[in-house]
Design a protein around this nucleic acid. Structure first.
Length: 490
RNA sequence: CGGGGUGUAGCGCAGCCCGGUUAGCGCAUCUGGUUUGGGACCAGAGGGUCGCAGGUUCGAAUCCUGCCACCCCGACCA
């Protein structure tokens, strides 16, 4: 038991906060609501980035970069969009400071910008302003651009990774000649996200449509992937928006199609953020610390020598270096921790806290028997393995761990997904267990709002694979043809 | 913006009510030694404008006034 961590079952929120700090992922900064992502946290983010970037490129997307600042006038061109974001925008009004009489620094009021600049909360507007110049003909389409960037949304209440005023993300912005093609892109990306979540992050998700209330400001349709955390709350892990022609109309982006007819361009946008770090933590970690799936672990294997003072370390180092070289040759990342300043027990606890998938310990006993003790983070079990077969064993073990973490998460999701048909049971389930609730809904925003007010649960999504069935709305009793996914969420 | 709370060493806290030694404790840090198969031990050392500014007083971390910052709970949200 990690003695510095709050117990997960006693106070989940505190456990999360402790873990982010203690595992050295991130910390609060001098700027309210903004975080410092520390090297270990950033290394995990880089693994996430690298794999997503590979997937984007494999599906024909390219990276570009657009400015951090957006002229206010751009921002106001799409009505729904402004309305959605206006309340949380940081605005730059001046471009110069000066010294005041007492030697302090003040804003130079004479250096007021003619037009204020909004710090991007998302980049649709500045990007579509460029697209207007890039698109004339169907031959210019599609445009499949992604950018890796920071954005700012001035949040009142923040939590490391889950909700911060500034966060890192990627935002894809695509332009298409037809509605069908744009819808297909929206669909392709939500599937890409879901695949990434399951294959790399070992987090099963539910794909679905957002209700009108939860939809992105300016989108005709928003698709989302929803994941379940270990406290039973839902977390939106990625969104893909079908924007229709809204932004093309706002920025007057028309193209000539094959028949010589002028039409507005069809658009999508999609993104995932550093919030995925929060998902990774809350989906898998335990009372000993993080559990990082091997595919996202910056460090997959650590080797710890156990020795007494009398020259034993040298012999162990020879074996450790040999094991390390063997694993590295197979593309596995390994660290040999021969620090003499900490005892083995300390190191065991430290690497467990950081979620390193595999730990190898070798001591005099192993040296004698030509073995190594291999411990896996996900199950906290140990086995003694002949040194000769360690490489093969660990190659298999890493795959095994990845699978096992996902399997565990899938079982958790299934055990915490409930089909509910009565209002009493709905409330009772939310309060007692939380989790995903599949229930009937009459399709009205009014009912959705009432349910939210009374229970704090929201419609996370209308699952793509929700079968058609006759039912009655959990709240209003009106007829419904589909179950939707309810949960309390982050 | 409403409601509540907290500011004392890098971190976590005690001291404040009832003013009075050199402001203390745990963790961390540094030095020396002994240790090393699950977060070692002993001995020693360093580290403080007690959030800021005024005031009361012979004397303020402690009492009074003002300000600032941060945290928690609500409204908003990926």
């Amino acid at each position: 038991m990690a003695k510095f961590l709050t117990n997960k079952d006693e106070n989940y929120a505190q456990w999360y906060n402790d873990l982010v700090i203690k595992a050295d992922l991130a910390e609060n900064s001098a700027v309210r609501g903004c975080m410092v992502i520390k090297p270990y946290g950033y290394a995990i983010w880089e693994k996430i980035q690298a794999e997503l970037d590979r997937l984007f490129k494999a599906t024909g997307h390219v990276n570009a970069y657009f400015p951090l600042f957006i002229p206010k006038s751009f921002f106001s061109k799409e009505a729904a969009h402004v309305k959605g974001f206006a309340k949380e925008c940081a605005v730059v009004t001046h471009y110069r400071l000066k010294l005041d009489e007492s030697g302090g620094i003040v804003v130079d009021e004479t250096a007021k910008l003619d037009e204020e600049l909004i710090i991007r909360p998302t980049s649709e507007t500045i990007i579509w302003h460029s697209y207007k110049n890039w698109i004339q003909s169907y031959r210019d389409l599609p445009i499949l651009i992604n950018q890796w960037a920071n954005v700012v949304r001035w949040e009142m209440r923040t939590r490391l990774f889950l909700r911060t005023a500034e966060f890192l993300w990627q935002e894809g912005h695509t332009a298409h000649a037809t509605r069908e093609e744009a819808v297909e892109e929206t669909d392709k990306i939500i599937n890409l996200y879901a695949g990434f979540a399951e294959n790399s992050m070992a987090i099963p998700v539910i794909k679905g449509y957002k209700s009108e209330n939860e939809r992105f400001a300016g989108a005709l349709d928003t698709y989302a992937i929803e994941a379940i955390m270990q406290d039973g709350k839902a977390l939106q892990a990625g969104t893909s928006h079908f924007l229709g022609q809204n932004f093309a109309k706002a920025f007057d982006v028309q193209f000539t199609d094959k028949n010589g007819k002028l039409d507005y361009v069809w658009a999508t946008s999609w993104g995932v953020s550093t919030r995925l770090m929060g998902a990774l933590i809350m989906a898998h970690a335990d009372n000993h610390g993080l559990v990082i799936p091997p595919k996202l672990a910056p460090l997959q294997v650590v080797i710890i020598p156990i020795y007494k003072g009398d020259g034993q370390l040298e012999g162990l180092t020879v074996v450790a270096e040999k094991i390390k070289a063997g694993l590295e040759a197979k593309g596995i990342t390994v660290k040999y921790d021969n620090r003499d300043t900490h005892k083995p027990g300390f190191k065991f606890a430290e690497y467990e806290l950081k979620g390193i998938p595999v730990r190898i310990a070798i001591g005099p006993r192993d040296l004698e028997n030509k073995t190594a003790e291999v411990a896996r983070r996900d199950t906290l079990t140990k086995e003694t393995i002949p040194v000769d077969s360690v490489t093969e064993y660990i190659q298999r073990l890493l795959i095994d761990i990845q699978d096992n973490i996902l399997k565990k998460a899938i079982i958790f999701k299934e055990e915490n997904t409930f089909y509910i048909d009565s209002w009493d049971e709905f409330i009772k389930t939310l309060d007692d267990k939380g989790g995903f609730i599949l229930a009937h809904w009459d399709g009205t925003a009014e009912t959705e709002m009432k349910i939210k007010e009374e229970t704090k649960a929201t419609i996370r999504c209308i699952p793509f694979d929700s079968p058609e069935e006759e039912g009655k709305c959990i709240y209003s009793g009106k007829p419904s043809k589909k179950r939707v996914l309810f949960a309390r969420s982050y």
